[in-house]
Amino acid sequence: MALKSFRDRQWADRYAPHIAPVNEYVDELREMGRGWAPYVAPLHGGVEARVLSILRDPGPATQDEVGSGFICVENDDGSAELQSILLEEAGISPFELLPWNAYPWYINRKPKASELDAGVETILHLLELAPKLEVVLLQGGDADHAWRRLLRIVPGVERERGLTVVRTFHPSPQALFVRDPAERAARVARRRAAFHEVAALLSGDRVVST
């Protein structure tokens, strides 16, 4: 999003057919009294996506005033940059991705349990909007907690939808703030391996996620 022309194109296309149902839903979320929520960039697949990628909450780079106004792997922040790199390394197009957050409203902190519950409702709605989803990529502990809460509400959703869940660490540098160098290296490796697992699943080569 560093290029104004790219950001302007994304903004102009924010209601393109593939992404309109998602961003119209974001418009609804903004009216719910929980605050502001970013759009999903039309660079991503929207209702055509095959991978639902869930992080914690929208970061500052998603804000209108200081950022792009979008959830996007082309945002100007470390988490987006790493995801873009990992997607490219694994051979996954950003269009395959529907990026979202465990709590989709902007808070820039760890969500409370009640906020995760509210976020679960939005994830369930996305599953309805995007029928082609095959993989759920959970990036970080809060995303994992949100998904487990979702499974308590709809315990058979993975089986019924044919979803495979891949778990990994959050792409933020904070995920590497551990004392043990071996653990830090393992987390770096796991983040890369997760994206390759997703690529294998999309190609039809079933793998066992961890």
Rank of each mutant, 00 (worst) to 15 (best):
W100P: 00
R56L: 14
H196S: 10
P155D: 03
G67W: 00
V166E: 05
K4N: 12
V47Y: 03
L129Y: 02
A90C: 02
L55W: 00
G141H: 08
F6R: 14
R149I: 04
P21K: 03
S203G: 08
P104A: 06
R9M: 15
T62Y: 03
R187K: 14
Q139L: 14
L98P: 00
R50I: 09
I123V: 14
E197I: 04
H44R: 07
A102G: 03
S5Y: 10
R187I: 11
L55Y: 06
S209C: 12
E81D: 10
G59L: 08
I85P: 00
P171I: 06
L129W: 03
L52Q: 05
A113T: 14
V198F: 03
R192W: 04
A186D: 12
F169D: 13
L3W: 15
P155S: 06
P58I: 05
D13G: 03
R7F: 10
T62A: 15
D142F: 04
C72F: 04
G67H: 01
V157Q: 01
V135D: 05
E24S: 10
D76G: 03
A80D: 02
A146F: 00
R50C: 08
A189T: 12
D27R: 10
A194N: 07
L150T: 01
D8N: 10
A143Q: 07
V208T: 14
V188R: 13
W11R: 12
